[in-house]
Design a protein around this nucleic acid. Structure first.
Ligand SMILES: [Mn+2]
Ligand SMILES: [Mn+2]
Ligand SMILES: [Zn+2]
Ligand SMILES: [Zn+2]
Lengths: 126, 126
DNA sequence: TTGTTAATGCAACACTGTTGCGTTATATTT
DNA sequence: AAATATAACGCAACAGTGTTGCATTAACAA
């Protein structure tokens, strides 16, 4: 079950993602918003926004949860699948709006895949 | 610093990986061996075997650590890079000995990548 | 304005993985 | 074979992210 009431927490979190060009980790949101909202609330709202197809989540290198806005997803369909890129210098995490061609794997049925690429972002190469 | 003394724990863990065709999670090793070895010991031995290029590690879907044997790696060079496949029915995790062609990403320097594919394994498709 | 109940805050918890430290076992030296 | 050095071990306590139960509060519709 997704978001039903437009609460302060929903409003603030949506604004965070609408004004960010990158993905945001749950930890960062908690660090920044802990004076306004309890971490439990933040986790629960993120969960519901994902249910609604507003956000998608994935795990970073340390196994921590990251969230970013979805494009063209809904509560019934999550079809915004793409790899992610994390800069090892500044920590920035980006969604990569490209298609990944998976390797041929005989005798297996592929249902999901997640690709995490790490390296240096444009700003950090210089 | 890697393995220096051939202890019981090193011997038993090496045997686990030498007799397994799949990757093994740290959790499973701890569950199976906790009567013989403390979990701290298991984590430390796995760490050192990875340092030595005997094992490689990666994170599964829930961010938990998995290990598998390396092919042709050493303490100085870890070059056995490949994707992994986890069966959503039986939980089995396999190394996929194939190359992944990464998408073109302008203005970024790629240093690492990890691809996790999920679906049904041969035994579970039937 | 009132009533319903979704959403929140708080505390306690679950779980994987880590650290410090005193003890034990391995391998080397005598 | 005995003594020595120290890597490895077990244990307990801890760290960090994320979850759960429950009483209280706030959103929204009647
Ligand atoms: Mn994304
Ligand atoms: Mn592997
Ligand atoms: Zn950067
Ligand atoms: Zn299977």
């Amino acid at each position: 079950m997704g978001v039903i009431r437009k609460t302060k927490a929903v409003e603030v979190l949506l604004k965070e993602f609408n004004t960010s060009a990158t993905a945001i980790s749950a930890k960062k949101l908690i660090d920044e918003l802990h004076t306004s909202f309890n971490k439990t609330t933040i986790y629960r709202v993120l969960d519901k926004l994902e249910d609604d197809g507003v956000l998608h989540s994935f795990l970073g290198k340390e196994g921590h949860k990251w969230y970013a806005k979805c494009n063209g997803c809904s509560a019934s369909e999550h079809n915004d699948i793409h790899p992610h890129f994390q800069c090892l210098s500044c920590g920035k995490m980006d969604c990569l709006p490209v298609n990944v061609t998976l390797p041929k794997i005989p005798n297996r049925k592929i249902e999901f895949s997640q690709l995490l690429i790490q390296g240096k972002c444009e700003a950090c190469i210089a």
